[in-house]
Every structure is written in C-alpha cells, then in structure tokens.
Simulated assay, not measured.
Amino acid sequence: MLKDEDINLFRESIKGAKKLAQNTFVAPKKVNVKKKSEQREIREKSDTLFYFSDEYEPLLNEEDAVKYLREGEDTYLLKQLRRGDFSPELFLDLHGLTKEQAKLELASLIQACLDEHVYCASIMTGYGTYTLKRQIPRWLVQHPNVRALHRAPKEWGGDAAILVLIDS
C-alpha cells in the first residue's frame, strides 16, 4: 500500500501532463506461413540447381559401371554400393522426363535427402536414348553433398538405376 506522501509526490511530478488519446490499434503483421515455406522451397531448389552445369565434363569412365567417389572418402563405400549394402530410402523415377525436368527433379531429390536426413537414394534413369543415363552422373558429381554414386545392384534397378550416397 502506498503512503499518502508518495501519492502526493507522484501527483505533483505529473502536474501539467496531458492525457494521451489511445484510440488507434495496430494489428500484428500476419505471416503467411504457407507462402513463406513455398518461397523457401523455391530458393533451396534454385540453390541446388546452381551446382548442375551441362558444360562440366568430369573424368568418368563411361564404358565401366557408372561410379564416383568424392575425394577424401573411403574407397570401401563404392564396394558397399556395388554390393547393395545400402538400402535407398528415397526413389526417383526419371522415365519420360526431359533433361530440364530431370535436372529439377534431381535438385528436389537432393534437397529432400538433406531435409529428411536420408543417406541413400536411388535414381531410375531407364535405358531409352541413354541421354539421362549419361547426364545424371555428370550432374551428381558436381554437387558438394554427393559422397559417392554407383550403378545400382540388380535388386535396386541394375543398369537402369544409380545409387547415390548423400551427406545428410
């Protein structure tokens, strides 16, 4: 409880002050979570697409099985991929897609692997004209989160598929 002298002191100190009119209301800014997450997905996909150049020619021996190992990785990873020791958690089927569509889908797959902490994915390239079968490994080796890739063993698609190990 306040003493009378404290109340009087307060009243004297505010003497001459004008009362403020509090007649405006500023509503908090509405954040559209759906739109924000869509924009984030678009940005992440474009960031991932940045790595895929059609001009880059890696040193891949295309007569042998498709294989790649990032510098500094254990060579045993390739043997494990070849034997099918890794089970892919995500599958991407590129049958019937153009190169540009396949590039977008590949970027989405890598981003999904990173978002969901998926270690191994399978990419079905099919046979067709061999355009995608040749191009997919060239794109994948450019991405910094791809640790290794190898032609899939028979149970995961054989010659028509590629297994990819992703840093997650």
Score class of each variant (00 low, 15 high):
residue 82 R to V: 09
residue 54 D to V: 00
residue 26 V to A: 08
residue 142 Q to N: 14
residue 148 A to L: 05
residue 73 E to L: 07
residue 136 I to H: 15
residue 152 A to Y: 02
residue 16 G to Q: 15
residue 164 V to M: 14
residue 9 L to C: 01
residue 158 G to N: 08
residue 20 L to F: 12
residue 4 D to T: 14
residue 106 L to F: 00
residue 19 K to Q: 13
residue 110 I to M: 00
residue 83 R to V: 10
residue 84 G to D: 08
residue 40 R to C: 04
residue 129 T to R: 06
residue 76 Y to C: 14
residue 100 E to Y: 07
residue 77 L to H: 06
residue 116 E to I: 00
residue 58 P to S: 06
residue 128 G to I: 00
residue 65 A to Y: 01
residue 33 V to W: 05
residue 59 L to S: 09
residue 82 R to P: 13
residue 149 L to N: 01
residue 14 I to V: 13
residue 78 L to V: 10
residue 145 N to R: 03
residue 42 I to M: 01
residue 11 R to N: 15
residue 46 S to M: 11
residue 21 A to Y: 15
residue 43 R to G: 04
residue 60 L to A: 12
residue 60 L to T: 09
residue 46 S to Q: 07
residue 93 D to N: 08
residue 45 K to S: 01
residue 87 S to E: 10
residue 157 G to H: 06
residue 125 T to S: 05
residue 114 L to W: 01
residue 3 K to V: 08
residue 61 N to E: 07
residue 37 S to I: 09
residue 62 E to D: 11
residue 10 F to G: 00
residue 7 I to K: 06
residue 1 M to Y: 13
residue 62 E to G: 11
residue 78 L to S: 11
residue 16 G to K: 07
residue 52 F to C: 04
residue 113 C to K: 06
residue 99 K to M: 09
residue 121 A to E: 06
residue 106 L to C: 00
residue 130 Y to L: 14
residue 1 M to Q: 14
residue 146 V to G: 00
residue 59 L to G: 07
residue 109 L to E: 03
residue 19 K to D: 10
residue 61 N to H: 14
residue 22 Q to I: 06
residue 4 D to M: 11
residue 34 K to C: 08
residue 7 I to D: 04
residue 145 N to A: 05
residue 13 S to V: 11
residue 35 K to S: 07
residue 100 E to A: 09
residue 72 G to F: 06
residue 7 I to F: 03
residue 97 L to W: 00
residue 103 K to G: 02
residue 99 K to Q: 12
residue 132 L to P: 14
residue 21 A to G: 12
residue 148 A to Y: 06
residue 119 Y to A: 01
residue 162 I to L: 13
residue 134 R to A: 11
residue 23 N to Y: 08
residue 101 Q to E: 11
residue 142 Q to D: 08
residue 71 E to P: 03
residue 7 I to T: 02
residue 149 L to E: 01
residue 136 I to G: 15
residue 101 Q to D: 05
residue 115 D to L: 07
residue 52 F to M: 04
residue 122 S to A: 10
residue 51 Y to R: 11
residue 9 L to F: 02
residue 9 L to R: 04
residue 26 V to S: 11
residue 168 S to H: 15
residue 71 E to A: 08
residue 5 E to R: 06
residue 139 W to Y: 10
residue 94 L to Q: 11
residue 29 K to A: 08
residue 35 K to T: 08
residue 69 L to K: 04
residue 75 T to G: 09
residue 65 A to S: 05
residue 75 T to Y: 13
residue 152 A to F: 02
residue 31 V to C: 00
residue 133 K to G: 12
residue 30 K to D: 03
residue 64 D to A: 08
residue 62 E to Y: 15
residue 24 T to R: 09
residue 158 G to V: 10
residue 141 V to L: 14
residue 115 D to V: 04
residue 104 L to M: 01
residue 142 Q to F: 13
residue 133 K to M: 12
residue 124 M to V: 01
residue 135 Q to R: 10
residue 46 S to D: 06
residue 156 W to Y: 07
residue 164 V to Q: 09
residue 68 Y to W: 01
residue 60 L to Y: 09
residue 104 L to K: 02
residue 83 R to I: 10
residue 120 C to Y: 03
residue 148 A to M: 06
residue 80 Q to D: 15
residue 85 D to E: 14
residue 83 R to A: 10
residue 32 N to Q: 04
residue 140 L to N: 05
residue 125 T to N: 05
residue 109 L to I: 04
residue 85 D to P: 13
residue 125 T to Q: 05
residue 129 T to V: 05
residue 124 M to G: 00
residue 113 C to A: 12
residue 166 I to S: 12
residue 28 P to Q: 00
residue 119 Y to H: 06
residue 6 D to L: 13
residue 67 K to N: 07
